[in-house]
């Protein structure tokens, strides 16, 4: 069992970690960051919960059991964005609106189809990383 301090700090850190992950995800278009890094950061936040609380408590508090479906959903989003231009007669991964047009902007975030692809990558990485953490912790706790 970990100390009270560790548990409190871990719990307090989860939300900021997810916010940082979201920032990395949306800033990737004019600045440093992308879906993969965001997914890893978010997974690190969840890994911290596993370390502090153990597998059973995390499974009760967070929807860890859906991680596989999240990963699959992310993969299908990515594949869809990859393949959609092929169906519409462009090159794979070509984004819309094209570079010559100005896309809709929310603050500094530009809404182009590449954002959707990166969200897919984010979900895929987050889902598979959490699945891996879950499987490995389960194996470790069984062995003891």
């Amino acid at each position: 069992m970990t100390s009270v301090l560790t548990r409190m700090v871990s719990r307090a850190l989860l939300a900021p970690t997810l916010v940082v992950a979201a920032a990395i995800l949306v800033k990737g278009y004019g600045d440093v960051g992308d879906g993969f890094a965001a997914g890893i950061v978010a997974a690190l936040g969840i890994l911290l919960q596993f370390l502090a609380f153990g597998r059973d408590e995390v499974a009760a508090a967070l929807p860890v059991r859906h991680a596989r479906s999240v990963a699959l959903f992310g993969l299908s989003v990515g594949v869809a964005v990859f393949a959609a231009p092929l169906v519409l007669g462009g090159a794979p991964l070509e984004h819309w609106p094209p570079a010559t047009q100005t896309p809709v902007q929310i603050g500094s975030l530009e809404l182009i189809t590449a954002v959707v692809f990166d969200v897919g990558v984010f979900l895929l990485v987050l889902g598979s990383a959490v699945t891996i953490i879950d499987v490995l912790t389960a194996a470790g706790e069984d062995g003891r």
């Binding site: 993969f36 490995l136 194996a139 470790g140």
Partner: peptide, 27 residues
């Protein structure tokens, strides 16, 4: 580097899985 990182990530997960399954069958 990003691609290599992803590959390294996958490989680490695989190796950890292998180590765990060695640990479980051999203690």
């Amino acid at each position: 580097t990003l691609t290599a990182l992803v590959i390294g990530f996958a490989v680490t997960a695989l190796l950890l899985g292998l180590s765990v399954s060695v640990y479980r069958s051999r203690h």
